[in-house]
Design a protein around this nucleic acid. Sequence first.
DNA 1: GATGGGTCCTCACGCCGCGTGAGGTGCAAG
DNA 2: CTTGCACCTCACGCGGCGTGAGGACCCATC
Lengths: 262, 262
Amino acid sequence: MRTEKGADEVSYSVGQVAGFGGVTVRTLHHYDAIGLLAPSERSHAGHRRYSDADLDRLQRILFYRELGFPLDEVAALLDDPDADPRAHLRRQHELLTARIEKLQKMAEAVEHAMEARRMGINLTPEERFEVFGDKDPDQYAEEAEARWGGTEAYAESQRRAARYTKDDWKRMQAEVDAWGERYAALVTAGEPATGEAAMDLAEEHRRHITTWFYDCPYEMHVSLAGMYVSDERFKAFYDSMGPGLAEHLRDAITANAARHTS
Amino acid sequence: MRTEKGADEVSYSVGQVAGFGGVTVRTLHHYDAIGLLAPSERSHAGHRRYSDADLDRLQRILFYRELGFPLDEVAALLDDPDADPRAHLRRQHELLTARIEKLQKMAEAVEHAMEARRMGINLTPEERFEVFGDKDPDQYAEEAEARWGGTEAYAESQRRAARYTKDDWKRMQAEVDAWGERYAALVTAGEPATGEAAMDLAEEHRRHITTWFYDCPYEMHVSLAGMYVSDERFKAFYDSMGPGLAEHLRDAITANAARHTS
DNA sequence: GATGGGTCCTCACGCCGCGTGAGGTGCAAG
DNA sequence: CTTGCACCTCACGCGGCGTGAGGACCCATC
């Protein structure tokens, strides 16, 4: 039977702690100097000795730092009297999921931009910066319209100037056109979107994107398909090939993805 | 029929551009000063006039900056002669998905830490900083073992010192114990993990976590269940209540999640 | 035509979060 | 006894801007 001897005295030197945390010794010196992380003890020779609790604190410091908090705010968070450790872990988890969501939105915006480029649609300035969610949408929208309005005309004027890529652009365009004709014929022939022919053309569409532009797995393809009907210009792009083509294609893409991932 | 008049001359002032990009005018001045983003023109009065291409460049600058690139590297990326715009979008998408993965791993590590805390298991220093994936696992592992080894003994010594929370900790522990007895009885009675009784206790388990520690949706609960069998100490924690309890519980949790989300 | 408000300009200094030496100390091994 | 290593304390510098100070321009209003 073990004796209940109380706290075991373990402590680490700056070098060890720096190793654990993946930071430099200088950083730890700095955190000590500004009072953010003062080692709970000093050795005989004046060397810093970090306790286990200090390590915990460092972990939190580095976590919040990684998420972009300035050090004084980090200190405020850590020295919060309601410093329940559970609360910290909970908050860390919340911050992480929030960041993940933000990045996923950015990724979607990038996909949107890639597709716009693929279709020769130029984006308005607002759309270009839509990637960064950090805008007051309300105040911003007002300002954008009121102060330097006329974006409609601008977008219209830019819509033609999009073919500034070189010569293989033509071959690519030819491929798109050929595919469009075949797909339009399929639609007018009354083929269902879940039919094999439609799914095959959907797959060809995906392959086209992958070979000419960027890798497009099925999941992403479905996401794009959603934009084809939700974004007015994407919809217009496909509907110009044939009436109702955008929706039809979306369903075909969805069905094609389902058949490949099942 | 529209005339092909060539490039439409649109340009924006610093204030407008700052508005679009969500940055300050000073930042644009700075980028001009260091040659990162020089406006393609100046007005009669010496005012900066940003073209549409400049906006594109700014968007990319801000994107890479957001992901933590220093400005000189950003410049290197943007002034890369192979500056195919497609390549940029592709790279942006790759960077984003990489970041998302990293954050998801961090989130998992946080969940791991939360569960460890819940079970009164103290983590080793290495595990504490496992959240940050930025460690050479090989070189690090060697160093950790060779230079300041003895972590096994350390972990052992810490395992008891984990109950440093106050008085309601006891009530919580009592709940855990009661639940454990009931679940053990269920297992010895031969109840299947997919049975209703097991699923009910799994749901109770989830509720316990949610009320005492952190919100635990079904998806996360399943993730935790995986750790109960993959992490040695978690497994030991549950198996100490009854033989084979960890696996049984994992299956019950999975089944319970399926029944609630279907 | 004078006055004001708004946006723009160019210095130039300062802050934060450290990196990077310079110069000195304590201790264990050769 | 010296060599080496990890530690110490200044202290300067750098990147990426924030924050004025002081002035020019433009348009509207009195």
